[in-house]
Design a protein around this nucleic acid. Sequence first.
DNA 1: CGTCTCCTTGAAGGCGATCAAGTTCAGTGG
DNA 2: CCACTGAACTTGATCGCCTTCAAGGAGACG
Lengths: 225, 225
Amino acid sequence: MLSEICLPLGMARHDVAKLDELIKERIRIPKGSALFHLGDKAEAVFGIRSGSLKTQLEDAGGQVQITGFLLPGEIIGMDGLLENRQVSHAIALEDSEVCVIRIDEMDQLSQHIPVLHQQLRRLMSKEINRSHQLVMSLGSLRSEQRLAAFLINLSQRLATLGYSSSEFVLRMSREEIGNYLGLTLETVSRLFSRFAREGVLHIQQRQVHIVDMPTLRTLAGTDCG
Amino acid sequence: MLSEICLPLGMARHDVAKLDELIKERIRIPKGSALFHLGDKAEAVFGIRSGSLKTQLEDAGGQVQITGFLLPGEIIGMDGLLENRQVSHAIALEDSEVCVIRIDEMDQLSQHIPVLHQQLRRLMSKEINRSHQLVMSLGSLRSEQRLAAFLINLSQRLATLGYSSSEFVLRMSREEIGNYLGLTLETVSRLFSRFAREGVLHIQQRQVHIVDMPTLRTLAGTDCG
DNA sequence: CGTCTCCTTGAAGGCGATCAAGTTCAGTGG
DNA sequence: CCACTGAACTTGATCGCCTTCAAGGAGACG
């Protein structure tokens, strides 16, 4: 059960039992505090059990760029495995809980469970793909398309978790959405207002209700030619 | 020697010998042709031995986004490991040669060379970081800063390969640079002209000579506060 | 009830896109 | 050798999207 949240992978059942040993350690992160900071030693990756987090880069000048919003079942911290140093900050958007997957322990365990490496590899590949999708969004979509695509993506991931795909609460601020999408908070706010005015969705603060998903997909501009 | 190009990792010498077995297969890719296309079966990743390639995503509407320019020593195709299907196109910018690293063979070999998994993991983490840097560039830099940062990055990677960091030939067109940086080819051209006018660099077609690296770093806006 | 944070909305301006000619250069064939 | 051709690049003029600046509104919490 834990392992299905932390490494939802499709492994043999008896392997999953061994895996449970690996990921028995958990950490609670209160809203607004950090799971790790840039520069921290990175000896593990973290599977999100509950809540949600953001990861953000910070350059020498203090400029921040959010690179992801992570939901339960997703893995955080894989970008730190290069030099065993975290290169980003991971901050909880709400009270959250993660399980700790120590890399050295995983390496030992995977001598008995060879597929384990494949699974982590797939998760890292997924992270690469996720980031490439964001690049595509930032590089070639206009503001309206970016926000629409963002909402659709969020909707789908929430649906996978068993939540409603049409009604949900944004855990992040307009400013955070804007930063993530390469827009200003004002632009995000205006777009929400416009989408609501056009009857595509209802929005009240952070409560979102997608009314017309087909039109939203059209706005995203990625469902046809 | 081959392995140092294909997996430049810092492994024990006797391990490297075994690794040579793994990566004995090579492929030559003529300029303009593809190493792989979107949808191809992905059973391997590829280490670039010589030349250079670009990777590009393509959405349902045919919209293209270049996600990377790859140089010798770098690995291509790691984004296809999620579903064993390529999710991008890899196209040679010049006549190039890659070595093939079959994933299943690598898994077998790494039972004898445990560090091998770590190395691939580090390379994948590096790819995640690379993509995140691009997100940062697209999300929070202005056109001038993006192109400056792009040139500095290219310069550093060429220096690592033993080439001059101040004089080199761009293997990609203005349009490709623009696509990669989320700009139009006209904007890229104008920026090159402006940089040259301001004495930061000389440019003649694709031949670049960086004259004033400190100023270029200032333009990139990432070297100080 | 005041204060603070987050959000909304308006007005003005700038940066990069778009449209439109020219220019350079490598390759081709007369 | 040189004109022809087409692709890649440069440069200019105009336009529009998004940012910036500014002010006001909505909740949350002491």
